[in-house]
Nucleic acid binder design. Sequence first.
DNA 1: CTTGTATATATCAGTCAGATATATATCTTC
DNA 2: GAAGATATATATCTGACTGATATATACAAG
Lengths: 198, 198
Amino acid sequence: MIPAPPRRANSREKASRTQYAILGLLAGGPRSGYDIKKEVAERISHFWNESLGHLYPVLSRLLKGGLVTRTSEPGDGRPTRHLYAITDEGRQQLDSWLREPVVATPPRLEILLKTYFGAHLEPAVLTAHIETYRAERARQIAMLESVHAMLSEAATAEDARYLRLTVRARVLAARAALAWCDEVLTEQRDLIREQTSE
Amino acid sequence: MIPAPPRRANSREKASRTQYAILGLLAGGPRSGYDIKKEVAERISHFWNESLGHLYPVLSRLLKGGLVTRTSEPGDGRPTRHLYAITDEGRQQLDSWLREPVVATPPRLEILLKTYFGAHLEPAVLTAHIETYRAERARQIAMLESVHAMLSEAATAEDARYLRLTVRARVLAARAALAWCDEVLTEQRDLIREQTSE
DNA sequence: CTTGTATATATCAGTCAGATATATATCTTC
DNA sequence: GAAGATATATATCTGACTGATATATACAAG
């Protein structure tokens, strides 16, 4: 009898993107879990997300693995504030991840799923969804463009170079999405006109 | 003493998008789990993904809930083939989900995360990532455009209307991504030139 | 005759999001 | 000035979802 091989013997380790996002942010200085969450929400939420429910366990794991250290500030009334700092080993891990090829994750675009099932509904319902989606894109473009303008100013341009590039990516993506909405809305109008004239 | 309220007393149920994707596909006729996986992979993988590891449990749940029925074809040698068909209640659930506003899920764009951390690397590394990403976009555009052309042909145009709209969305998105890559590559060249001339 | 691909279902580990819990300080609004 | 919202701060749990793996067979290519 051949003994059953151990499950997940030695395949490629499942990459926790959260882990590297944390290391990358800590490379800019010590932060608490709460700080990380805030920074993600305020600066890079246009392309990245972290939930607190995942952040804390991953921070603990990084601590155990020696990729970060932890110092505790007695919280005056509030819970103790834990400041995490990246170690040399953490920096090495971050560096090697940054050099690895980008892994493409398959998308899940709910607006397109509902579009795909459009035949199961009256055209007006899809039109309404697209109009909502379009309005959100328009708001997003306005917001991102104003951020982009600020980041392009001489005073911050050097510092903000890479953040500015990410903002630009999302501006172009949002404009493309908006253009698509307009195409769909035009087609939907034609479709509704055809149907009502029958 | 006030008894502790039950956890997750009655908040909004966590929506399983997989569930509605399945119902939507089954609305087009009975299918097996394997069929569904194939259909997703071959037709809508440009904007949607389903893993088998999730598909089967959700199909079981839908069966228990009466949203689908199951008939078994004895597999000739192969495992028994289970065909799932949508019920009236399933159609109602699908219909009401299709009418609900689209829920935006926060993005996680790894290419932008590595871009954001660009300062921690030599510019040439980021350039290489962007070049790879650009090449993938170029391939994707070529592929989607040829699909789009086929779907626009008179013979299929009526049938394929909604699929065509989703393909168009991804063409525009991929073109925008490609344009962004070109902007970044130009900037990176300038940056490297400045640095080497110092 | 072995390797790869297709058919077909099923389970498991691990990632991750979102809700909830706890406890306090501060700012805002009637 | 009390009530209520918002910010600080950590922690846990449920459930959604991915990707790898397991099992079994058939068929084609080399």
